[in-house]
């Protein structure tokens, strides 16, 4: 029982970070039909911005995090949208998919060449204490990760549903033409979506790197997991991506312990196939007229 509780908590903590990536993935799809195959690398990169700030520029940790956020907003947000997504949107989804695959490769290889191929230790944001509750050892880090990601997603949800800008963004995602007629600046709303995605990626990066260490190849697994979480939860809902992320985190940890460590990464994939067969719109998704 204590073991189960422990697995559940660490699963939820990992899952909440996956959810951050998955939510960003979903938002990009809704706002601009971008299936971002570089999403994993988007989470990998900001950690290296932090490391550059700390080791090369000698800044303190939190200043480096802010620097990383600014760089991510500029590169992963504005530049990605202006230079890659915008010119390619009229050509349909496929060339854009190929371009994001290439972009992921570009980011991965650049980090490997210009920073280093080995895993880099990353400073922890939370104390490394472990508490024992009802026989289960619970680390402050896990709880901290869970709380921060839930606050981020909760805040995003409030922003989207309660503020004027948030509702304009939803309108632009649901029906850009009508939103435009009603006076919403659709292009700006799409840009906001890209900025939010960059922010979520930075948060996820800072949370996950102390656990997995910062490595150029981190994006491969993260991207796949975010992708699966988004589909399992339902592509057209933030709630869906959240549930998908948490579910994948828990299933991943459970299967590592109770099924087989070798086939640990197979379980989310099997879940993906089952979901596509039985409920293609995802667990929480609603089938819309639109093709997702």
């Amino acid at each position: 029982m204590a073991e189960l509780l422990q697995i559940l908590i660490s699963g939820l903590a990992a899952g909440s970070i996956y959810a951050l990536a998955a939510v960003g993935f979903t938002l990009l799809w809704q706002a601009s039909q971008t299936i971002n195959f570089a999403q994993g690398e988007f989470v990998m990169l900001p950690a290296f911005f932090v490391l550059i700030g700390m080791t090369v520029l000698g800044l303190p940790m939190w200043t480096s995090v802010i620097l990383a956020l600014v760089l991510s907003l500029l590169i992963l947000g504005v530049a990605f949208k202006r230079l890659i997504v915008e010119p390619m949107l009229p050509h349909g989804t496929l060339p854009l998919v190929i371009a994001t695959i290439a972009l992921g490769l570009l980011m991965k290889e650049s980090v490997k060449e210009f920073y280093g191929a080995t895993a880099q230790p990353f400073p922890a944001i939370f104390p490394q204490d472990v508490y024992h509750i009802a026989g289960a050892s619970v680390s402050v880090q896990d709880i901290g990760n869970l709380v921060v990601s839930m606050l981020a997603i909760g805040g995003l949800q409030l922003f989207l549903s309660r503020t004027r800008t948030g509702r304009c963004m939803q309108a632009s995602a649901q029906n850009p033409a009508v939103a435009e007629i009603l006076g919403v600046n659709v292009k700006r709303m799409v840009l906001y979506t890209f900025l939010i995605n960059a922010t979520l990626a930075t948060i996820a990066s800072v949370l996950i790197s102390p656990i997995y260490l910062a490595k150029f190849s981190n994006g491969e697994t993260l991207g796949l997991v975010a992708f699966i979480a988004a589909i399992v939860g339902g592509f057209n809902q933030i709630r869906g991506a959240l549930v998908g992320g948490l579910l994948i985190g828990v299933i991943d940890n459970l299967s590592a312990v109770y099924i087989s460590a070798q086939y640990r990464s197979a379980m989310p994939l099997i879940l993906l196939i089952v979901i596509i067969l039985l409920r293609p719109q995802g667990l929480l998704g609603t089938s819309e007229g639109r093709t997702v």
């Binding site: 390619m88 371009a99 290439a102 490769l105 570009l106 060449e113």
Partner: peptide, 20 residues
């Protein structure tokens, strides 16, 4: 040398932007 994949990925992105 090591920059091959970087150049390659960059070329693919440029190709996709100009000629899908």
């Amino acid at each position: 040398e090591g920059y091959y994949l970087i150049i390659y990925a960059f070329l693919v992105i440029v190709l996709m932007v100009y000629s899908p």
